[in-house]
């Protein structure tokens, strides 16, 4: 019997002791709208995370010195921004459920079975598909731009990995770098032709956005990349290749064209 019924019947009968309160007699506590609540938390955290990512990641990522390097960094920021709401979707719903639906006693019966919600299923599949499709299209467009655009007068550098150094040959000038130096002119596209003489090495110039496997007996050509900032940057091996792998290192020097010409001459070539 509800409280309203009790009040309505109070005057019709002789005074009787009030019945003991029963669960049905107390006002029903209103269940909060969990879905709306968790959705709000998710949206707020996602927006905060995405904005923080956009503004903070450029300070964390290594500097770039080429068009490809800039594309690399932009791609990392973009993928991280896209990944934040996806990751938070899982974490927020999980954490919210752990707190909101916790029970102190061991449950005696199973939870209510989930009823299929077509909109939820379609939405989940749809959003996931759109994200994947976007990534595929983005990757294909980026790859097309890198692979198809053949700039005028590119510089070709043949890179050979051998335990444990890189050697650089400039076929257009008929000369090799005398030491552990890769010198490139600024604002001139360069293409690396990479191979190995022994084991698998990894040729990586992070600032140029170049990272390619150096395979023995195989020649791999990288997309064109254009150094855009004069400076000195590391060239490393990123495949564990033996005793002195950690010393398999060279120095990239991006210089102006006249300095590059002088360097070529000093190495025994003819600019």
């Amino acid at each position: 019997m509800s409280e309203a019924n009790i009040d309505a019947n109070a005057g019709s009968v002789a005074p009787t002791p009030p019945p003991p309160p029963t669960p049905a007699a107390t006002p029903a506590s209103r269940e909060p709208d969990h879905f709306r609540r968790v959705l709000t938390i998710w949206v707020v955290l996602s927006v905060i995370g995405m904005v923080a990512c956009i503004f903070l990641l450029p300070y964390i990522l290594p500097p770039t010195a080429s068009n490809l390097g800039s594309v690399d960094n932009f791609t990392i920021v973009l993928l991280t921004v896209l990944a934040i709401p996806v990751a938070l979707f899982v974490f927020v719903f999980l954490a919210y459920s752990m707190f909101a639906f916790r029970v102190r006693e061991r449950p005696r019966e199973d939870a209510l079975p989930l009823k299929p919600r077509p909109m939820l299923q379609v939405g989940f599949l749809g959003i996931t598909s759109v994200l994947c499709l976007f990534l595929i299209i983005y990757g294909l467009v980026a790859y097309y731009q890198e692979a198809s655009a053949a700039p005028a007068n590119p510089l070709v550098v043949q890179v050979t990995g051998q335990q444990w150094t890189w050697t650089f040959y400039y076929p257009q000038y008929g000369v090799s770098s005398q030491g552990q130096v890769l010198e490139l002119p600024v604002n001139r596209a360069v293409q690396f032709v990479v191979t190995s003489k022994d084991v698998l090495h990894g040729f990586a110039v992070r600032t140029l956005g170049v990272r390619v496997d150096a395979n023995p007996g195989q020649v791999t050509t990288t997309p064109y990349t254009t150094p855009t900032a004069i400076g000195q940057y590391p060239v490393v091996c990123v495949e564990l290749c033996g005793l002195y792998h950690s010393y398999m290192w060279s120095s990239l020097k991006v210089v102006d064209q006249s300095t590059f010409n002088s360097w070529i001459t000093s190495q025994g070539g003819h600019p």
């Binding site: 150094t165 005398q178 030491g179 552990q180 950690s246 010393y247 290192w249 120095s251």
Partner: peptide
């Protein structure tokens, strides 16, 4: 006989 510089060395020698 090949002598080479380690990373971040201030005195390159090859």
């Amino acid at each position: 006989f090949t002598l080479q510089t380690t990373p971040d060395s201030a005195n390159p020698l090859f």
